[in-house]
Nucleic acid binder design. Structure first.
Lengths: 338, 338
DNA sequence: TCGGCGAATGACAGCGCTATCATTCCAGAA
DNA sequence: TTCTGGAATGATAGCGCTGTCATTCGCCGA
């Protein structure tokens, strides 16, 4: 906390940050006028405004939004709760919602649940204690208590990356079950017979698996094999597919990172065919990471636009008149991997 | 903002969230006692505490930290400023610092500069207006005005991912210049003659380039070729190395994403040797993404522990007695790619 | 018996701002 | 000249908490 005191005129070396009142005194106006210069400069005369702005500059005044929020009951805060931000598609969603929120003067407060229900509940309470004007989260609250807190808060709540039948308030996502269905149908149509699924066990992965299973059955195939990987084990864990489902001729990975890890392991095991011809084992991911597009073989995937989910979630959070349930859809993108 | 009013007893259907005072009334104590139950339960008698806790539960009381922060001048907020959170190594750092901060009751407020100096300054002001107890940012402030705001705020400021000679307050990172030097030296020792560098032009990439250039010269090599990619163009842009520096026999990519994109393009162009033997064109990345480790050929890289940077930054932010400049170092990890 | 002390609880003021209403002032209409 | 009304500015009262005393009360030792 070094500070170059020399840069600041002696009379301004306060221990505490300058307040509205200090600025007002210096400019010879009342505090409320300073407040107006900050929030609605238009209604202050040019002469006064200039004097106040000069005083603010001289003092290095930074408005205290904590006080402002308390007085106005508007925090301009949006709480964001994700399972994890590291190495994940959710980072795109946070990016997308920030893009919408920041220009409007909203600040994002971020919390991570680590896929842990108890922790999610705790983080929800922590977020709510900051009195955000909206909460945007990945998925629906895992616990009834969490859902109840959210309802009582009487603020906008947007659930993302899935589409609950009855969202607490709003939802922006896609049908994970349908994504699983689409992949299984595609595999069946492409003549694949022994399907496998690799993914975690959060609700979204579960829905993908269920859709995948049902569609495989409907197509008259044997039940796909399900390979579970613990979250937090990293994408590398997905390579166990090679030992746990060695006979599979088509694998649906719950996300692109798993899919790429798997393809890399397959290359190493010399299980990949030449580029340009059909692969002996088809692999389809989900998420459409840029890396997947660049990869060789280029990864087939369920494209989901994480950034758009974020943007839409932000818009739903801010505008209560918009339809409360937005399906951003998905798209099976076929490339070289299967 | 649907709400199941039916779930809540009629007398509790308030339009506004319950306050300390409401809880106090219901429990038959004074507001300050309720405050104590929340903050230091130990000093309240069991009997009273139980009554208050019951009242809080019944009312669904969630403390208002906005008011609490104003009254106590402690916000328990930490501002985090990153260039971008999407698809980036900085997500790991945010993860790391959250791990330290959250259990201590701190909340992260997040802002992105988008590698834009003016926007960085704006976001810094926005962050500061929330009165965080510390600011953790990637790099040093880009503008003097930004640095000045930070200094005047008299809070902990931690710069990360680089090690400024004179940080505003504290820094947790590594020597980007030295990383460039190490890679060039390694390439020279390995007999590579025509080096290339691909990266953006932020200060950290610049330092890596400078170190790379100097060490190449010192080793008696021709000046490496520098291939610049615009930020935001995505990792795919790194593949232009193949056309802009077709003769290079060793490439240092400013981050692993670029390196992986490049290797993928090389495979597609059939420029990769068989796994297990030295590659015709060596590629070294920076960051040690899990994906690089899994990739075939496994990516050689400058390992930098983004999570540790975040954790350390959080510790520096909270403890002013710790040494203010922590070099987390880096490590050249040689794998199959070069 | 009584003073003294620690444990438990409370009263009061104020954090830095904003909502709301009041006041001042002057141009233009009557 | 007087009156009216809009533009500009100000006074006042909180927002929901917490810091800082002050008070109460039961219990112990002298």
């Amino acid at each position: 906390m070094v500070s170059r005191m020399a840069d600041i005129p002696t009379e301004l070396q306060e221990r505490t940050a300058p307040t509205l009142e200090a600025v007002a005194k210096r400019a010879g106006v009342s505090p409320i006028t300073v407040s107006r210069v900050v929030r609605q400069p238009g209604i202050v005369s040019d002469d006064t405004r200039l004097r106040v702005e000069a005083a603010m500059r001289e003092l290095g005044y930074v408005p205290n939004m904590v006080a402002g929020s308390l007085a106005s009951a508007r925090t301009r805060l949006v709480g964001v709760l994700v399972p994890t931000i590291a190495n994940s598609i959710f980072a795109d969603t946070v990016q997308g919602l920030s893009e919408v929120l920041e220009p409007l003067g909203f600040t994002v407060i971020l919390a991570q649940s680590g896929y842990d229900d108890a922790r999610e509940e705790k983080m929800l309470a922590a977020l709510l204690s900051r009195r955000p004007e909206a909460i945007i989260m990945v998925g629906a609250p895992a616990t009834p208590a969490g859902a109840e807190m959210l309802r009582r808060a009487r603020i906008a709540v947007v659930e993302t990356w899935e589409l609950p039948a009855a969202p607490i308030d709003a939802a922006a996502g896609f049908d994970n079950h349908a994504a699983g269905v689409e992949v299984a149908r595609y595999f069946a149509k492409a003549g694949r017979r022994r399907l496998a699924f690799v993914g975690g066990d959060d609700r979204r992965a579960e829905q993908r698996w269920l859709g995948f299973l049902e569609a495989a059955r409907a197509a008259g195939l044997d039940d796909p094999q399900r390979v579970s990987v613990t979250r937090g084990a990293g994408a590398g864990a997905a390579t166990v597919v090679l030992t746990e489902a060695p006979d599979a001729d088509a694998v649906f990975a719950a996300n692109d990172a798993y899919a790429i890890a798997l393809l890399s392991a397959m290359r190493r095991a010399d299980l990949l065919g030449p580029l340009g011809s059909p692969q002996p084992v088809a692999v389809v991911g989900l998420g459409d990471l840029e890396m997947g597009r660049l990869f060789a073989p280029a990864l087939s995937t369920i494209r989901v636009h994480g950034v758009a989910i974020g943007r839409t979630a932000a818009e739903l959070a801010l505008d209560p008149t918009r339809p409360r349930r937005v399906d951003l859809g998905f798209e099976l993108v076929l490339r070289e991997s299967g």
